[in-house]
C-alpha cells in the first residue's frame, strides 16, 4: 500500500457513506447491459429457440393462430425431400469451392502483398474494395459480364474461337460463375485476415531460414505455414459459416437456377419459407443449418483453445 492510497482511502469511504456509487460499482451493471440484452433477447436468442418450436408445426406465416402442431413431420419430410438433398449437394459444391478458394488464394494473395511498396498498396486496395461494396450492385455487374450474348466473357471466348458456354444459363457453368463471383467479392476479407496473421509470424525465423539458403517455397512451407495454422483454421471456419448462408448473389445472379443448379440449402430455406410459404418446413431447414454451423463454430473454438494452451 502506498502513501497515496493511505490518503485516498478515508476520503473514498466517506463518499461511500454519503451514498455515492463508485465507478467500478456493479450494482447498476445489469441496467447498463439491458438495452443490448433486450435487443439480443428479442431478436436473436429468443428467435433462435423459437425457430425450433416453429419447425414442429405446419406453420401459417400470415396468421400464426391457424398453425397446427405436427411433431417431427417437417423433419421426416425434409429427409425424404429430393429438393433438400439436391440443395445439400449444391451447398457442398458451393461451400467447398468457396472455402478452398478463399483459403488458398487468400493466403497466396496475402503473401504477394505482404511486402511494402506502392504497387502492392494499390493492389491491396483493389482486392479489398469488392468486399466493402454491395452484393446486389456488384452481382449485377457480373451478370452483365456473364451475359450469354453480349457479355464480356463470352466475347472473349468468341475472340479466341472457343465455344461460348452461356454461363448463368447453363446448368454446368452457373455454379462455377457464382463461386467465381463470391471469391471475387469476399477474398478481400480473407486477405486482411491472412495479412494480420502474417504480421505475427516471426521475421527472425524467416530470415534465419533465408540465411540458411532455404528456397522461398521451403521458407513458406516450413516456417510460415506452421505459424499460421490458427489463422488458417479461423479462415476456413468463418468462410464455411458465411458461404453456408450465401443468398444475395444467388438470388441476383441465378434465382437458384437454372433447374435448381445453384439452389443451396440457404437459398432453399428462403424459397420454401417466403415463396412457397412452407414455413414449418423452412424452419426445419433452418434448424439443420443451425446445427451444422454450431458444429463448425465449436470446432473452431476447440482448435484455437488447444493451440493457445
Amino acid at each position: 500500500m502506498t502513501a497515496v492510497d493511505a490518503v485516498v482511502r478515508p476520503q473514498r469511504s466517506s463518499r461511500r457513506r454519503a451514498g455515492r456509487i463508485g465507478i467500478r460499482d456493479g450494482r447498476f451493471a445489469l441496467l447498463y447491459l439491458s438495452p443490448a440484452l433486450i435487443v439480443f433477447g428479442v431478436f436473436t436468442i429468443g428467435p433462435a429457440l423459437f425457430v425450433l418450436y416453429i419447425s414442429l408445426f405446419d406453420w401459417n406465416l400470415l396468421n400464426s393462430s391457424l398453425s397446427t402442431f405436427t411433431g417431427l413431420h417437417n423433419y421426416r419430410a425434409l429427409g425424404s425431400s429430393a429438393d433438400f438433398w439436391h440443395s445439400i449437394v449444391a451447398s457442398v459444391y458451393f461451400v467447398g469451392c468457396v472455402v478452398a478458394g478463399s483459403t488458398v488464394f487468400g493466403l497466396g494473395i496475402a503473401l504477394l502483398l505482404s511486402s511494402r511498396g506502392l504497387v502492392r498498396r494499390v493492389v491491396r486496395l483493389a482486392v479489398l474494395t469488392p468486399y466493402f461494396t454491395p452484393l446486389v450492385a456488384t452481382s449485377i455487374v457480373w451478370v452483365w459480364i456473364f451475359n450469354p450474348q453480349y457479355g464480356l466473357l463470352d466475347s472473349l471466348l468468341r475472340m479466341l474461337h472457343l465455344p461460348m458456354v452461356g454461363w448463368l444459363q447453363s446448368t454446368t457453368w452457373a455454379m462455377p460463375a457464382v463461386i467465381f463471383y463470391t471469391l471475387w467479392h469476399d477474398l478481400g476479407f480473407t486477405v486482411i485476415i491472412f495479412l494480420a496473421g502474417l504480421a505475427t509470424v516471426s521475421t527472425d525465423l524467416r530470415e534465419a531460414a533465408r540465411v540458411d539458403g532455404a528456397r522461398y517455397r521451403h521458407e513458406i512451407r516450413d516456417v510460415v505455414l506452421p505459424q499460421l495454422t490458427q489463422t488458417i483454421v479461423f479462415v476456413i471456419v468463418i468462410t464455411t459459416i458465411d458461404s453456408l448462408q450465401a443468398f444475395t448473389q444467388i438470388y441476383t445472379m441465378t434465382q437458384g437456377g437454372p433447374l435448381q443448379a445453384t439452389t443451396t440449402t440457404g437459398f432453399l430455406l428462403y424459397q420454401e419459407s417466403f415463396v412457397f410459404f412452407h414455413t414449418g418446413f423452412g424452419a426445419a431447414i433452418a434448424v439443420v443449418l443451425f446445427a451444422v454451423i454450431a458444429l463448425f463454430t465449436l470446432l473452431q473454438l476447440r482448435v484455437s483453445r488447444s493451440r493457445s494452451q
Binding site: 431478436f43 425457430v51 416453429i54 453456408l244 428462403y270 417466403f274 414455413t279 443449418l289 443451425f290
Partner: peptide
C-alpha cells in the same frame, strides 16, 4: 454474461429470418 454475448456469434442470421418475421409481425 461476456461468454453469453460472445456465443451469440454462433447464431447464424439466415436461421433468424423465419422467427424474426413472426416476431416483427
Amino acid at each position: 454474461v461476456l461468454f453469453a454475448v460472445l456465443s451469440i456469434l454462433m447464431i447464424p442470421k439466415v436461421v433468424l429470418l423465419i422467427p424474426d418475421y413472426v416476431v416483427l409481425s
